[in-house]
Amino acid sequence: MEQNLIRCSGLRKTYGRFAALEHVDLTLGRGKIVGLLGPNGSGKTTLIKLLCGLIQPTEGEILINGQKPGPYTKSIVSYLPDRMYFADWMTPRDILDLFEDFYADFRRDRAEAMCASLQILPDKRIKTMSKGTKEKLQLILVMSRDAQLYLLDEPIAGVDPAARDFILETILRNYNEQGTVLISTHLISDVEKVLDEVVFLCNGTVVRQDTVDHIRETEGMTVDGLFRDIFRAMPYRREPAVTEFPRMEGGEQQ
């Protein structure tokens, strides 16, 4: 077994002339919960999609458990996209059937128990569910797999604080202890205490990788505080005579 679960070297991904990721060398071990942190448009979703094998790198290499993304890695990676991808006429029962067919490591009993504890009815159509319920359902499906790598793209964006606690607790209680969880988010203060390690992305490059407690020890501040320090943007101040707008860069990639 490879010692490192994820190894990226010289990774680069461009969309047209825009480089979403550049010179990314990243190694992640096993049994860890890792935060992938960065402002909007810093390349978090791009990196996760590369790890999933949904998109291909322009340059460089990705190895998951020693293998390039492909059918094998997909069988050990459980991915939570940043948006709902099920047809809205489907019911939780339909989706559970689908997951059971698709993934050998799916634990249907676990998913059913979690749905029951949240009073998600098996025959209620997705169309009729609230946004928060849909997000919780999707997380339940992803966390009901005994995967090696969980890739969670913004699992807590857009839900209320109580639902956030539920989501984080679900992750803590259900992830496979030999596996690694990679959570992308910009809501750092909410996730900081569940993380071992953080990776800061800025304009497509990794600017820092460290453990949460090491940052707190050496910087004397929370990871949230450090993030605000690193990414503090000067608000635009109106000058008496404006001749030119500042050029915008970045933006979320689809």
Binding site: G31, K32, L168, L172, K193, V194, D196, D213
Partner: peptide, 11 residues
């Protein structure tokens, strides 16, 4: 304990 406190098990 980790789940109860909402923290990472390694911590």
């Amino acid at each position: 304990l980790a789940a109860e406190a909402g923290v990472n098990p390694n911590t």
